[in-house]
Computed example of a mutant assay.
Amino acid sequence: MEPSIRVFQFWGGLCVAAFCRHHRFGHRFIDELVYHHVELLRAPDLPAWDIAGARLAITGRGDAPPQEVLGIIPTELGDDFHRLIECATEIGIVDLYGAATDHPSRFLLKCLEVLDKHGIPKPREITCPLPAIVGFGEALGEEAFRNAVGRDSLPGDEE
């Protein structure tokens, strides 16, 4: 896969999944957010992908997660979880309707900082130092998507 915002968004989703797996909590609303982030790899219609993300129970766009999710997150992890989902979401939307910037890279680095703070290894798919990206790139076809995503780093899967 060529480095792109799509790939960085996928990596941001993997960071959220790794954080939750490490701290042993999960919820279908968190899974939906992670899968939405991953889905950008193959989304042919970027505005439709953005709209779908705004309709999730957890959007990562400044609103608090639903009470049923907040209730399962240990209090001491709440701020970092919120920062992580906000930064992971921003990777894919910060440049969606404007000029290409280095902001997606900055937000991915913030995701990695949260993992590092908690002693969580970065998902194996993430290459560091982060490669330079230019725009969103092309959507992956179905076979390339399945090869890229695998299953072992997503919610509900074993490490």
Rank of each mutant, 00 (worst) to 15 (best):
F19Y: 10
F19A: 08
F19L: 06
F19E: 04
F19M: 04
F19Q: 06
C20R: 01
C20L: 04
C20S: 12
R21H: 11
H22I: 00
H22W: 09
H23V: 03
H23F: 07
H23E: 04
R24P: 00
R24H: 13
R24G: 06
R24E: 12
R24Y: 05
R24Q: 13
F25T: 01
F25W: 05
G26A: 12
H27N: 11
H27A: 08
H27M: 05
H27E: 09
R28I: 07
F29P: 02
F29K: 14
I30Q: 05
D31M: 02
D31A: 14
E32I: 00
E32C: 05
E32A: 15
E32G: 06
E32W: 00
E32S: 13
E32P: 00
L33R: 06
L33T: 07
V34E: 04
Y35Q: 12
Y35W: 11
H36W: 15
H36V: 02
H36Q: 10
H36T: 05
H37N: 15
H37R: 13
H37V: 00
H37E: 11
H37T: 05
V38S: 04
V38H: 05
V38N: 05
E39K: 10
E39S: 15
E39V: 00
L40E: 04
L40N: 05
L40R: 09
L40S: 01
L41G: 07
R42W: 00
P44M: 01
P44D: 08
P44N: 07
D45I: 08
D45T: 04
D45M: 11
D45W: 11
L46P: 06
L46V: 08
P47I: 04
P47A: 09
P47V: 08
P47F: 09
A48I: 01
A48W: 01
A48Y: 03
W49P: 09
W49L: 07
W49T: 09
D50Y: 14
D50K: 05
D50G: 07
D50T: 01
I51M: 12
I51E: 15
I51V: 14
I51D: 14
G53P: 07
G53M: 09
G53D: 07
A54V: 00
R55Y: 10
R55A: 15
L56H: 10
L56W: 09
L56R: 14
L56M: 10
A57V: 00
I58Q: 05
I58M: 09
I58L: 12
I58H: 02
T59Y: 03
T59D: 01
G60A: 10
G60K: 06
G60H: 07
G60E: 03
R61Y: 04
R61Q: 13
R61P: 00
G62I: 03
D63T: 13
D63P: 00
D63L: 11
D63A: 15
D63V: 04
A64L: 15
P65G: 09
P65Y: 01
P65D: 03
P65T: 03
